[in-house]
Amino acid sequence: MLTYALRRLLLAIPTLLLISLVIFLLVDLAPGSPMSEIPLTVPPEVRLKMIAAMGADQPVFVRYVLWLRQFFWVEPMHQVDLLFGSHIVEGQQRIISYQTRGPVFTVIGERIPQTLTVIGTAYLVGVLIAVPIGIYSAYRQYSWFDQLGTFIAMLGYSVPTFFTGVLMIVIFAIKLHWFPSIYNTSLKVTDWASLLAQIRQMALPVLVLSLFNAAEISRYTRSSMLENLGQDYVRTARAKGMGEGTVVLKHVLRNSLIPVVTVIALGIPGIFGGAIITENVFKVNGIGAALIGAIHANDLPMVQTLTFIFAVLIVVFNLIADILYGVLDPRIRYD
């Protein structure tokens, strides 16, 4: 398993390089220019000069190589310089966003906290709700609990967040005044009052997102559990006189987890990617909002950097899922 993991990690390097190239070409090819959000009152000659100052007029491969160098050398070394006070890359240009004309990693640093707290919590809540619901729904198939669970899950999935988000705001922020409709990113949790404020401003986005996440995961858990509950080994285990708890939670669950692990692992990089619509509806301004804003503004360095980090996370978490397969089902071997 260890050699497998190491081999996969080594193989991931060329894969990621290829992915980064494809993303770069794709974003470059996409119609639109970094000037799309500049008002029409700025004359064309000035626009061309602005594009030149951003370096966006260089050939695509020059920009790609520059980005590679900045991402893999300048940025890490800049962190080293900050930590140890050294001067390895002093004066060298970091990855500069077209929109903000500042370093991309500064923006990412500003955005990570709210993305992790809001989207991360929502995902965690979603998983914690979904798995037990999925298990119990399968165990008591077609009971009222299962029916209700199915109904809510499918409703949660089929009604888009651009609708549920606004609906929650109308009900809980406008009519009832329980929660704010706008997320305050400057809020620092220092005492009980600010903690309460933080919980209140997180409540609505977390509710909307966790409903959406829980829907998908609970469906996969339920169907996989159902599949396994009918297997012979369950009958055998019961025949041996094992308790229902042991049978369901130890034997069936373990064998049912493969699709669940896959779905969860696919979702975790999404936490970093943020939830574009929900972030926008509640003005959370996390990574998702940064990404969509950068895409609209054709801010190639920002899009490229965010997407690439996202790609790294996808590769890593898919690898983790593959390793977990082996742990869950020792018959799966990769060597």
Partner: peptide
């Protein structure tokens, strides 16, 4: 047309 394409002025896009 998506506003960022329409107003983007990218000479490569047919939709500006």
């Amino acid at each position: 047309v998506d506003a960022s394409v329409f107003f983007g002025g990218d000479a490569g896009s047919p939709d500006t």
